[in-house]
């Protein structure tokens, strides 16, 4: 059997997904035995023009991490789509926008104002900002255009599979690579992770189904055996897809939702909001003087909590800016 051609690319990403690929350790040798890596900017010196010169569909599988923040990300998504038989949205950024997607609470103007002018470490008396195209003595420089809105990969091009997680857990990566190299691929559009929630994989016991008080993580030393949510620590486990073996919970940290929505759930944030509202204040409801506003005001930053990884992928997708 001839070797497969693999490509790895990073768009608007933190680099963590690249590390996750390296974290498969010696398994990478199995990959290299079955596949040639034809493009991987973080590790190999291959230029964009080399990709452009490839015949269409030359790449068998492209693993694309990072969201679509600017015109370079977009161009590369389109180019790699054309050159690849299978395109995998690798990691939360490509899948649903992730942390960079929280920038959708602002637009380019606000972000530039903050980054180029307001940050305490910035001295920029001429109020310079990136300009493109830009004329210099040697010619014209075309810099990427920064978009107002962060998009997911599948809001930009057609995507075949999704590998969730920030970054995807090594187990899921290894399984996905095995499936793909064996040619045993699931139906197009599949998320390559188990059909259950983080709670289903979580070893903690749950029985209360009601809470009265919310604690931030630093406000409480969690009891080791019981569900964090039942201890009042906001945990996105009920609304998050499994696949990570509930790894945060194993080190006493709540799930913040990086695995993305549960199967068939269109909006992870809304699902968690709904679940939380069902259990918070159940005992207090029937009491004299119950104040639902006060009860719910314990959740300080609903978008940042419920949509930490999924704002661009959510139903509303971004903040509406005042005209």
């Amino acid at each position: 059997m001839s070797k497969l051609n693999f490509a790895f690319y990073w768009a608007a990403s933190c680099g963590g997904c690249e590390i996750a690929i390296l974290d498969i350790n010696e398994k990478i040798l199995d990959v290299v035995a079955k596949a040639d890596i034809v493009f991987w900017p973080v590790a190999m010196d291959v230029k964009y023009k080399d990709v452009e010169a490839m015949p269409d569909k030359k790449i068998d599988v492209c693993f694309f991490n990072g969201s679509i923040r600017n015109s370079e990300n977009e161009q590369m998504a389109k180019l790699l789509r054309r050159k690849s038989k299978v395109l995998v949205a690798f990691g939360s950024c490509a899948h649903e926008g992730c942390i960079p997607g929280l920038a959708n609470l602002h637009d380019r103007k606000e972000i530039f104002e903050r980054v180029y002018h307001e940050t305490p470490s910035t001295k920029n008396p001429n109020r310079d900002e990136p300009i493109t195209p830009f004329e210099v003595r040697e010619g014209t420089i075309h810099k990427p255009i920064f978009f107002n809105t962060v998009k997911t990969l599948d809001q930009t091009v057609d995507v075949d599979y999704y590998l969730p997680g920030c970054p995807p857990p090594v187990d899921l990566i290894v399984k996905a690579l095995e499936l793909i190299t064996k040619g045993e691929v699931p139906p197009k559009g599949s998320v390559l992770a188990p059909e259950k929630s983080v709670c289903d994989e979580c070893p903690r016991t749950k029985d209360q189904k009601k809470i009265s008080k919310i604690f931030r993580v630093y406000e409480k030393e969690p009891e080791p055996e019981t569900c964090l949510l039942e201890q009042g620590i906001l945990c996105m486990g009920p609304a998050t897809r499994a696949g990570c073996s509930a790894q945060c919970l194993q080190v006493d940290y709540p799930c913040t939702g990086c695995g993305g929505p549960c199967p068939n759930e269109p909006d992870q944030g809304a699902a968690m909001l709904s679940a939380l509202a069902s259990i918070l204040g159940v005992d207090e409801e029937m009491e004299e003087g119950y104040d639902p506003e006060e009860m719910m005001s314990q959740i300080k930053d609903p978008v940042g909590t419920f949509y930490k990884y999924s704002l661009p992928h959510s139903i509303i997708k971004r903040k509406v800016m005042k005209k």
């Binding site: 909001l273 639902p292 719910m296 959740i299 609903p302 978008v303 419920f306 949509y307 971004r318 509406v320």
Partner: peptide, 16 residues
């Protein structure tokens, strides 16, 4: 009631 209180907060954070 609780869902709608939270959802209203989400909406206002999203400029709606």
């Amino acid at each position: 009631q609780k869902r709608i209180i939270l959802l209203k907060k989400v909406l206002s954070q999203l400029g709606i």
